[in-house]
Design a protein around this nucleic acid. Structure first.
Lengths: 254, 254
DNA sequence: ACTGATTTGTGCGTATGTATC
DNA sequence: TGATACATACGCACAAATCAG
């Protein structure tokens, strides 16, 4: 007889271990599984799903193969800390970075509208005091987990209707291309950290007590004219900004 | 008759507004003035010193001219946040950076001794599992305020006695030079953030609830051989790491 | 969206002491 | 000595920006 309360369907064509694997993956994604990265023991999972421990082990093995979890003999099974190494270098896009690390990029636009530039934004873009800018705010996700918030400011002049275009494209790059911006170059980046506001914490799905990395960047066109001022908030837990030096080489004298 | 309780000396040759300026500056330095960077209102200061508001304004104007405070109409007068912009670029040293921003660099060695490399350090320096490294830990200060902790790891081989040399020099660069290391190049930098441990918070003189920037860097010699692995903790409040791009240009696609 | 309170910014008038011509 | 200029300090009033309710 089929157990109505069970999370599993023993008659289904997908193997039970795979159903368990899927369920575990969903709970991991939702962040509801295991306190602080440690998964429940194989025995307790076996009890919960009313299956043999071997079946659980198959599911856990699959998680391990995916690089999502890691088992340590005598200790337990732990979620691997998937940090996104975000290299700040030539011609890198967030989606490329995430893909290169075997994760799936996603995200969505939170808002896109005109507003009066704040002092910081106006200064960065070399605009007048009460100049109009277009603000695009979006979340950035890797493997379905939001890891960052991006706020992009564009001078309103020459970008008329951009706040609408953004919603028509799924891709910021594509939207920019439609307004004639094919390439832009990062002129400078400053990195700091702080605690998130309650709204930011909610968007990032993290407590307000966990710090976020704040990266501010000015992007210019070929002629050095400022095109975009971008501010990105990253989950400090999950993102490391990486600055590699080539032969020419940066150097720090600390 | 001279008021004994007054903080001011009206018969003195220095103007009253200047005496007030000096008193305020001292209290700002001591950190006893105003909660969270906001100075008392001009009116309340006028009451406290029993002078006219114009007189207070002259003192505040002087603070403003010094770049110590900033007045915002309708809002109040605030201490300016003196952030150290720490450019990660060619041939910059902490002391140069701090000096360039009109502040005084200082700091001192917390400890310098041999220890077995942790996995992270051993990996970075390409050393064996139980290799010896020399750890130098120090604080870094600008204008007398500690803004960072630096932890430097050097392969023990070829640096014999370095942990003693460090205490003989006031300068890390000088100590390195004595061991034949004149130049080194930053190969890579990763930046993240977290909350400090209680010890770190104490050293940085900040609450454990305020995040710190964590910068990890690998320094190599001309031949690309790893020389030093450095880990720096910065007060996120007071330090911004800055990555400028030249013509060649970094770029971020977020 | 409005209101009242607070705070800084500004102008003008007055008075006093000090340095300069 | 007198005239002038300047810095200092006080008092009053109002404008402008901000903030809390």
């Amino acid at each position: 007889m089929k157990q109505l309360l069970s999370e599993l369907d023993r008659d289904a064509r997908v193997p039970v271990w795979q159903q368990i694997y899927n369920l575990l993956m969903m709970e991991i994604r939702a962040g509801t599984l295991g306190p602080e990265g440690k998964l429940p023991s194989a025995n307790s999972l076996a009890a919960r799903f009313a299956v043999n421990r071997h079946t659980i082990r198959q599911a856990l093995k699959a998680l391990e193969d995916d690089g999502v979890a890691e088992s340590r003999q005598g200790s337990g099974t732990f979620l691997v800390r998937r940090v996104v190494d975000y290299p700040i270098s030539n011609k890198t896009r967030f989606s490329d970075i995430v893909l290169a690390q075997g994760m799936a990029p996603s995200g969505h636009i939170l808002q896109a509208r005109k507003r009066v530039a704040s002092k910081e934004v106006a200064d960065a873009l070399v605009l007048g005091k009460r100049a109009q800018v277009i603000l695009v705010e979006r979340t950035v996700a890797a493997d379905g987990v939001v890891v960052g918030i991006g706020r992009h400011f564009y001078p309103s002049a020459g970008m008329a209707g951009f706040e609408k275009t953004v919603f028509e494209c799924h891709n910021l790059t594509e939207a920019l291309a439609r307004h004639g911006i094919e390439t832009y170059f990062r002129k400078s980046t400053t990195v700091s950290a702080r605690l998130p506001s309650s709204r930011e914490a909610r968007l990032l799905n993290q407590p307000v007590s966990e710090p976020v990395l704040v990266s501010k960047a000015l992007n210019v066109d070929r002629n050095g004219k400022p095109i975009e001022f971008g501010m990105a908030l990253f989950l400090a837990n999950r993102v490391r900004l990486q600055f590699d030096s080539d032969s020419d080489s940066d150097r720090l004298g600390l």
